[in-house]
Nucleic acid binder design. Sequence first.
RNA 1: GGGGGAGUAGCUCAGUGGGUUAGAGCAGCGGUCUUAUACACCGCUUGUCGGUGGUUCGAGUCCACCCUCCCCUACCA
Length: 1139
Amino acid sequence: MNSRASDALGTPIRGPMFQPVEAKPDLIAQEHDVLRMWAERRTFARLRAQNAEGERWSFLDGPITANNPMGVHHAWGRTYKDVFQRFRAMLGHAQRWQNGFDCQGLWVEVNVERDLGFTNKHDIEEFGIAEFVSLCKQRVLTFAARQTEQSIRLGMWMDWNDPDELRRLRDLLASDPGQTVTVQGPDGALTDTVEMIVGRLGMPEIGGSYFTFSNENNDLIWGFLAECHRRGWLYKGHDSMPWCPRCGTGLSQMEMNEGYADREDPGLTLRFPLLDRPGEALLLWTTTPWTLAANVAAAVGPKLRYVRIRQGGDEFWVGRGTLRQAVVGPFEVLEERPGSDLVGWRYSGPFDELPAVRDAFAKGTRDEPGQPYEHRVVAWDEVGEEEGTGIVHIAPGCGAEDYQLGKALGLPVVGPIDEEGLYYDGFGWLSRLEAPNVAERIVDDLERRGLFYHLEPYTHRYPHCWRCGTPLLFRLVDEWFIDMGPVYDQPRETLSPEQFDASLRYQIMEVVGRIRWIPGFGYERELDWLLNMRDWMISKKRYWGLALPIYECRACGTVEVIGGRAELQERAVEGWDVFEGHTPHRPYVDAVKIACSGCGALVERIKDVGNPWLDAGIVPFSTLHYREDQEYWKRWFPADFITESFPGQFRNWFYSMLAMSTVLRREEPFKTIFGYALLYGEDGRPMHKSWGNAIEFDEAAERMGVDVMRWMFANARPEENILFGWHAADAARRELLVLWNVYAFFVTYARVTGWSPGDDPTAADRSPLDRWILSRAAGVAAEAEDHMRDYDALGAGRAISRFIDDLSTWYLRRSRRRFSRGEAGASRSAAFATLHEALIATARITAPILPFLAESLYQNLVVGGDGQGDDGGDGDGAAPDSVHLTRWPTAELAAQRDEALEAAMATARRAVELARTLRGQAGIKIRQPVARMWLALPGGELPEREALLELIAEEVNVASVEVIGDESDLVERRVKPLLPVIGRKLGPAVPAVMTAAREGAFEIHPDGSVTLGGVTLAPDEIEILATPRPGTAVAHDEGLVVVIDTALTPKLRTEGDVRELERAIQDLRKEAGLAVRDQIEVWISGLSSDVAAHRDRIAADTLAARIALGAPPEGLRQSTVELQSGRVAVSLRRLASDG
RNA sequence: GGGGGAGUAGCUCAGUGGGUUAGAGCAGCGGUCUUAUACACCGCUUGUCGGUGGUUCGAGUCCACCCUCCCCUACCA
């Protein structure tokens, strides 16, 4: 897979153990190579087989809607899903690996309608429901195939269907759903009609992703609904519901919340003349003039105050508190009364003459059935004075609250509009007009009739259809609901068992409490939703979806709910032959009729389809074969883990799963839920094509690479929105390139020197630096494991980042000479073996998050180019041929852990930093050696002291490092009181103690205690630290003190010049494009004799066959180098023959 | 109206069993280092840690109130 790499290094000395790698990798091409390799080697299938007997870890996939290509926002969640599944696989867990597709519902219908150019439901009926439903299935299969391909590209390992096979089924379904087809399942071939094969997707005999349109899924929902009915929780409601006139369907409370948007409506104030008080009229305000035709009453707040005012020749009644906003122009207040006085007054309605209104009113009220009703003023406690006139237009057929009020008072109801939002017949000139568009004509009409008062545009939040954006209307409809049970006005813990049993919502809450919510606020949010939600509207007057198995007898009103396909067959008295052989969808299922158990009449299914969240909510049962394989279900239920985006899913998937599992089992369907926020564009706004901040998944995958994407996602804070874009991707890529560079360095030099693993030095033979990085590797494996077990990818990512940084900027920086120079064989072997092991550990630890990069490294470091498993460094010669087949390495690496060494190294690194700061201040370059450095250590000790001091000396380029105690003249002792220890004990005395410590006013006693600020502190309450004595050129940090000798002797200056010259020659080699192993010859003119004395060393370090002092041959370019001993001119050229 | 989240450097974000001096990356400037790394290191610069009070010896961190943004929820005609 590294076949494109160029080899600028010449022929290796020994045979190539490692494939050459590029300095700048093409990560994307590499990802495609890895995908091919996984497919060829059947790596995933082998992983599943390897873990088949492992302890279960049950992940339940929230279905992705198969209605469009997936977007980068899906990739975020799918990264989490894959990361945790891969991680658990490395722990050896058995998993189900089943992806899910959400298939049924209006969102698919809307797209199919759009493709067909349909504008309303009539078009569908004319087109034919059977064909329409088939097109919906085909669309789902199209995008299931597409999303499968995209998910595979993301590196997501699931039991995928072959996308081509999905498309083949789609095409066969299109040509003839009844034709017979054979497909290959895990246990052999399977033959059935295409329609039924499609209906069985995801079942054990076919395998692959689950589809919520499957027969099993639908069937189990029937069972759930029958259970609800059995308990008396399913009912038909007659209500004023939000309605989308384009889709021709009502919206549930869940859906309502999706589409609130600002909208400008006419704010119309009009007058309702009072019948018994000539010359007086009520003033009313409405933003929905189309509902005036359905006006039945005018509501006042019985406790509010109302005034009669005079304007010109008119007298109006209006709420006192609304005078300022409602009345236009000067007026005179004539009298004031409480609202209760107004109740019962009759008024002349705005459209009394319409036949529909007359008919409705003729029937009278509930309390006076015979007596024709007349418009009147009613009392309503909810009337407010913030807006309008304090008198509210009540149209029970056009508003949920209006309906409730009308129902309470027994008022007649006028339902003015049909499914498409057109006025029914009987509404005079309004009939057949579109309700949302009649405002202007109604205003004109009212003006003509002298009922108009004032018009002013009004902007407010108004609900829109979340699918098509059409403003919603309220319409009188029959819909089916699941009763959520009462909300008790008392704390949950005080409920009686009877109360608890009577209320589904509290039963769900109890289940919610048994689940771990990450982040924790999810728990509160779900409870909040449950407490507030109203009954669940599950019906939809549409075509593509779950066929609600509700049979309502027109003759006697008996409602029956069929609990499954078998039961339906049993009960069928007509039409089963039409249905047989079809999936439980419209129109075929509609043909089946049963005999009413109450009166024996022939009953047909209600035409409605189900709320799509029923489809997704049942999957903890349907996909785990709740009905046909209890053993299997018990093994995998409840799921250990689910993860989805938080916003929205509280009231959708989470809710529906919880509700259904509570009804069926009163058990939690999952143990842990991990939620994440939303993905936005880099500019902090939602991604939107027209805003130019949208990025398609495919484009992201092929331009930034999926490992880069995954790295970004894994390192995001899940509870906050992620800002996704090309700049963030660049930053993530840079981080990964650091790892790549370490790897490329290793491979380059392993090839140059011919190093290969095998005769590795024991730990004892390795330097402290080697042991340090291996300890770090062991530490990061353990740390990342802890985070990953806790579903904290971010924590793991941060630990990995720190490790990569340590590996690159400290281990390799400090070790590089051991790889490239004429180092002693043992040290070189130790360095190679250490780096090799560290890189393999890194590959394994990063494998869940970066499956491609980790695999690339692993293949070259462990497996070798031939694909045959080779020694993995564990000496058994049988390493797995994929990093994803290895186990998580915590236990393997644990013996390498040495925390004392890690702490010591941290001190050494800090000392180096301080020394570098000092050199910078003194203006002495790193290349210029200095003679001495003094070091005071906190606590006075340092494990591996000699080696670490040497390391510091080398890094700082100093001849000798001397450790000094706190008694040294170079430092003075300071006392650092340990605040967390003494704070509580001393309280108000703290400031005095701290001041004394700062000023050095303390006395140290022989027993180690210290007196300062009038208090004596025990040795374990203070630390004694060294700090610089004022006036010396030193740097310090937390008791670590560094002093360097800035005096430069002639010998040191010469040494500095030598290194300067060497660096210049190396620069020239690089400029000349020479390979690392090319031999050169060099000419130097103007070199001082002191520096020239080191000619041999310079030649050795720069691979120069010889160095001539003097002018170069004709034509060779000279470069000037400034040395402390004077300016010299340098030339070089490559030796003609490369021995 | 009720509930939740967020507010820390120009940008993206770390930082809670309270500990005195608030950090990183990116960007900018000045250096250094380097035949793995257009890479890394060192230094400089910008902070009323949203505001105001409170608790405390001590508050970015805990409490109260307020401001701004986002989300959820609610019957506002």
